Amino acid sequence: MSFFRRLPADVRKALRLEPGERVLTFARSDDGHVVATNLALFLSDGTRVPYEEVDKASWDEAGLRVLTMGGGRHLERISEPHMLPETVRERVNSTIVVNKHVNLPGRGGVRLVARRRPGGEVLGWTLVFDEGLDPEDPGLRAQAEQALEGVRRSMGV
């Protein structure tokens, strides 16, 4: 395997890159190419997934699994990942400004996560309740919102 690999010209041309966006690494999948840029992950079907919209990305023997904030699920079957898993992990982690778990009175807790676009402003907060807690419970949501305000004040975000 050559250390210097080039993304095929037709694949590069098909990417809808934003100004200043550059390819970091790529891997061949069963259906084409998966490309990691400095701003987003391009799936083999051409779907562009900005890193701040990735809820979870994992790698196993089946390939790269990506779950988006909107609930989209993607599996890319990749036999030779090269640096793709490490690059995706690093880029997704770079969008996390705050990731803090807060205990709620007598009820478990909530993870408060603030994300930002690479190099951009904070986009918003996500509340991830512990297993078994109902995120629709108004009392629970009020406690979580109160905890969020405390975290925002203390961290200046």
Rank of each mutant, 00 (worst) to 15 (best):
W125E: 09
R153Y: 10
L75N: 12
P8A: 07
Y51N: 07
D134I: 06
S154I: 00
S44F: 01
L140G: 03
R28F: 04
P138D: 10
V54K: 05
R107S: 04
D55N: 06
S29R: 09
L133N: 04
R111L: 13
L104K: 02
A27E: 11
S94T: 04
L7G: 03
E131L: 09
D30N: 11
G132A: 02
V102Y: 01
R153P: 05
Q143G: 00
E80I: 08
F129Y: 11
F129L: 00
D45G: 12
G46D: 02
R141I: 07
L15V: 07
R107A: 14
P19Q: 05
Y51W: 01
E86G: 14
G63H: 12
E136L: 06
P50L: 03
V157D: 10
H33Y: 15
G150D: 13
R12W: 08
N103M: 05
A9P: 11
S29L: 10
V98H: 09
A36Q: 04
G71S: 06
P118N: 11
D31N: 14
D55Q: 09
R12I: 00
R48W: 06
N93V: 00
R65A: 14
G120D: 09
V122C: 05
S94D: 15
E131C: 03
M83A: 14
P118I: 06
F129M: 00
A144S: 12
V11Y: 00
V151N: 06
E86F: 10
L41R: 01
A114P: 08
L7D: 04
G20M: 01
H33S: 05
R5Q: 14
A144R: 00
A27M: 06
L140T: 02
K100D: 03
G70M: 01
F129V: 01
W125K: 00
L123C: 05
A144K: 01
H101L: 05
V128H: 08
D31Q: 13
A144M: 05
V34Y: 02
F3G: 14
L148R: 13
D55F: 12
R6T: 11
E136N: 10
Q143I: 02
E61R: 15
S58P: 01
E121K: 13
I96E: 01
D55Y: 02
V11T: 14
R117Y: 10
T87V: 15
V35I: 13
L75Q: 12
G70D: 14
A144G: 07
W59M: 07
M1A: 13
D55H: 07
F129E: 00
E136R: 06
Q146E: 15
E18D: 15
Q146Y: 11
L67D: 06
L84S: 02
L64E: 08
A40F: 10
N103A: 13
V157E: 13
T95N: 07
E149Q: 15
R91T: 03
E76P: 13
E76I: 04
L15T: 10
S154K: 15
L133F: 02
L104Q: 03
G109M: 02
L140P: 00
T87G: 01
D10G: 07
A114N: 03
L15K: 03
R22L: 09
G150K: 02
G132N: 03
G139H: 12
S58M: 10
G63M: 07
H74S: 12
D30P: 01
L24T: 04
T68F: 08
F3K: 13
R141A: 02
R116T: 03
R141S: 05
A40C: 07
G70C: 01
D30H: 12
R152C: 04
E86I: 00
E18P: 08
R5L: 08
R28M: 08
P105A: 11
